[in-house]
Amino acid sequence: MIRLVRAEWLKLRTTAVPWVLAIIAVVLDALFILTVFLTKPNVGGVRDTSAGYIVPHTVTQLRDLVGAGFETYLLAMLLGALCITTEFRHKTVTTSFLVVPRRATFVTVKLVTAAVAGIGLAVGVLVATVIGGGAALAARGGSFTAMLHQVPAVAPGMLLVFALFAILGVGVGSLLTNQVAAITALLGWFVVAQNILIGLVHGALKWVPSGAAEAAANLSVRNGGGGGIVGFELFTWWQGALLLLGYGVAFAAVGWAVMTRRDIT
């Protein structure tokens, strides 16, 4: 299994996909960092609408800053989806199935590799944030050390969520092996459908992957503190993590069942 994961990692890094996604993640991260500096605190329900930037100094603001790149977990998910659909797009799956004739093993190796790659992406985003966000903070007279102190509170949740979303990506990709279909479905869900669902059914947030991600990362402090995004209820971190893992594994299981019956011609 280890040798297959290493081969899979070689497979992944010898294409442009992970590097392009990593670059996109860092660019988005820079924008998110900027947003943190521009987000005025809500004081007693009254929004500060003055121009200019803030210098993060409270625990909440500093954690916001360290976790600025959190939402790039969607890129970890795309990485997972791409690493499996690329095989079908370029028909490299023929060679892969010759090396690993058991399709359950094939899907498992993808899940493990993508999870590791997701963690790698999380680490990359965190490092970029600490360097970029830290430099900006220091330049504005904030305390870089105070920011560093918040890294242990934020990092584990990020690594966990990135890994789980990479798994979810592989799961969806193993079911929708057509690359365009998989990417369209995933973006369609996260950009549009999920928001409509939450809008219609208030309690749905805790059940959808994004809500589970917020819970699993245990970063709800970012959203005003006190157990969740204002006005919404979330699961505890381990419930959220299990739910996400469940989604990923369920898709992968159905994907595997379909793939196993499939003829590669």
């Binding site: 899979e8 070689l10 010898t14 294409t15 028909k91 892969s96």
Partner: peptide, 27 residues
């Protein structure tokens, strides 16, 4: 060893990497 009807490579991958990746997976 099997040679099937051509074109099952990732176009962005170098020939040597393709072979190393298969070799590694096959031990």
């Amino acid at each position: 060893g099997a040679v099937l009807e051509a074109t099952s490579f990732h176009p962005g991958r170098r020939a040597i990497h393709h072979l190393r990746m298969v070799a590694m997976g096959a031990g």
